[in-house]
Simulated assay, not measured.
Amino acid sequence: MYRIVFLLLSSFLLWGCLEKKPEPLALPYYNEPDFTPLFIKEKSDVAKKVTHKIGNFSLLNQDSIYITHKNIEGKIHVANFIFTSCGSICPVITKNMKIVSDTLKGNKDIVFLSYSVTPWIDKPFVLKKFKERNSIKNPNWQFLTGNKSDIYKLARQSYFAEENIGFSKDSTEFLHTEHFILVDRAKRIRGIYNGTLSLEMQQLIEDIKTLEKENLSL
């Protein structure tokens, strides 16, 4: 009798273990241009240990409307750096960003920012045509242009756009990177992805969903 009861209890415990789904892993934070991941277990430690945030900016979008840092406050955003005359990686990374955008286009709290690295060419009307040519309909995807120095400084010092160089590269040197940068609601960098690889877009989508579950106070 005791043996039967023991076997039944063991079965229930085993079934419970099988049914319990593992908690998703928290995404790391990034404080430095070399993208060394910083994993933090306690939420109370985030403010003390994570010092880097995306800086302030004010740039024109494809509709000649100013988009600033205030437009991303309290929102998750993904940033990349393109130029409309690029014939190499830009068409690929735009296509891959569109995969993510189309998957999440119903969510107003997810913003996509594509900064032009040739702003002297990519005026708002040029960016508007580029957006139309690529059939991009997500109203939360902004193509941004403005002062070259401002964009390059933001790219290198805030987004660490060229992760193996960071802000040490001279601001006059041409900026060209395939990376997508994932930023949380508090403007902290949480992920870097190779925009030329469609497989990494699936990971980016999953990571965005993970960030959506995080406490807004972070």
Rank of each mutant, 00 (worst) to 15 (best):
N147H: 08
E162N: 11
E73H: 14
K187H: 10
V126C: 08
L60D: 10
I192E: 00
G146K: 15
L13H: 05
R133N: 12
L154S: 11
K187L: 09
I65G: 05
H52S: 06
D45Q: 14
F57W: 01
G55K: 12
T177K: 04
S158L: 03
S58T: 00
K209N: 06
T177Q: 06
V78L: 13
K129T: 10
P33Q: 15
Q157E: 15
I208G: 00
W141G: 01
S135I: 03
R185K: 13
I72Q: 11
V100I: 15
L218S: 06
N164L: 03
L218Y: 01
P37H: 11
Y115K: 05
T172I: 09
F174L: 12
K75W: 11
V50N: 00
S88A: 08
G16V: 05
K153E: 04
S198V: 12
D63T: 13
E163F: 10
L204A: 12
T177N: 06
V78W: 02
G146P: 00
N80I: 12
S135D: 11
L13P: 03
S101I: 14
P139S: 13
F57D: 04
F12W: 10
G55L: 02
E206F: 07
Y30V: 05
T68Q: 15
Q142G: 11
V183A: 07
K21Q: 13
Q203G: 13
Q62R: 05
G55V: 01
K53A: 14
N140V: 09
W141L: 05
N107S: 03
F6W: 10
K48S: 13
E178Q: 08
L197W: 07
L204M: 14
E212N: 02
H179A: 15
K70F: 14
H179G: 07
F160Y: 01
I82C: 04
Y159S: 09
H77V: 03
F39K: 14
Q202M: 13
K70S: 13
L216F: 02
N96W: 09
F143A: 12
T172C: 04
I181E: 01
I93N: 10
N134V: 08
E212M: 09
L104V: 02
Q142S: 14
D102S: 12
L144Y: 00
S11P: 00
E173C: 04
I93F: 08
F112K: 07
F12A: 14
S116F: 04
L113F: 03
N61L: 06
T145A: 09
F180R: 13
F35Y: 10
R156F: 09
S217D: 07
D150F: 07
S198R: 13
G166S: 07
G166L: 01
K187Q: 12
K49I: 06
R156E: 12
S116G: 07
L175E: 07
L104Y: 06
G87Q: 13
K187M: 06
T145G: 04
A26S: 10
C86V: 03
Q62D: 15
D63K: 15
T68Y: 11
T210S: 09
A26C: 03
D63A: 13
N31H: 08
F112L: 08
V183M: 08
I165W: 02
G16F: 04
